[in-house]
Design a binder for these strands. Structure first.
Length: 193
DNA sequence: AGCGGGATTTTCT
DNA sequence: GAAAATCCCGCTT
């Protein structure tokens, strides 16, 4: 019997501080009675001081969740077809969060393959791919990650020496800000630059 | 292996 | 009305 104590206190730090601590943590999704689990391997920090963030220009209908309490899920829709998810960080009222860009399948891989009609690294080596395999959509914007059917299971911090830091992907503003973290050498990382 | 375009709709100017 | 925290496919080298 495993007793899991979800300790989300660390999520109240700044997005930049929290991001590398999320590497190695488990994201669990209950879907039709099946359990899917992935290990987070690539993340990016965003906050309201950052021109690339959805929260930079203040609270909007879309970005509202990021201004809420830490430990909730911020799901946004983009490019007319994709969902991406963030873990909200920091204090209530300050718009910040960590984009989950890539993860490694741990349990339920066969279901993920069905959800995406792909296999191997293509299952989860990108933010919209991850949402697709876990069947995460707009309904889960604001979801509390300490509760079913989507839970974050914190893990002890991984060795600093196994973490790489680089610039963020796919943005046009604040391109030079190195707020992206990933597990060095993990095959599910979307881009190694 | 790398480039370019298309899909498709929300969001803000 | 254009751009967007993306992904996939087809074409070129």
């Amino acid at each position: 019997m495993v007793t899991e104590i979800s300790d989300f206190k660390f999520l109240k730090g700044s997005a930049y501080e929290v991001a590398p601590q999320l590497l190695g943590c488990i994201l669990e999704r209950e879907l039709n009675g099946q359990l899917l689990r992935v290990k987070i391997v690539e993340v990016e920090a965003y906050d309201q001081t950052d021109p690339a963030s959805h929260t930079f220009k203040g609270r909007t209908a879309r970005s509202n969740t990021m201004f809420g309490p830490a430990g909730h899920l911020y799901v946004y829709f983009t490019y007319g077809m994709h969902y991406c998810c963030n873990i909200v960080t920091g204090n209530d009222g300050f718009g910040s969060g960590v984009l989950i860009r890539a993860a490694e399948p741990i349990d339920g891989t066969a279901i993920m393959e069905v959800n995406r009609k792909q296999t191997g690294v293509n299952l989860t080596n990108g933010p919209a791919k991850l949402c697709q395999v876990l069947s995460i959509n707009r309904e889960f914007d604001g979801h509390d990650l300490s509760t079913s059917p989507i839970r974050l299971i914190p893990q002890p911090p991984i060795q600093t020496s196994t973490i790489s830091q680089s610039v963020r992907i796919g943005i046009s503003k604040a391109r030079e800000t190195s707020w992206r973290f990933y597990i060095t050498g993990n095959p599910y990382v979307s881009k190694t630059k």
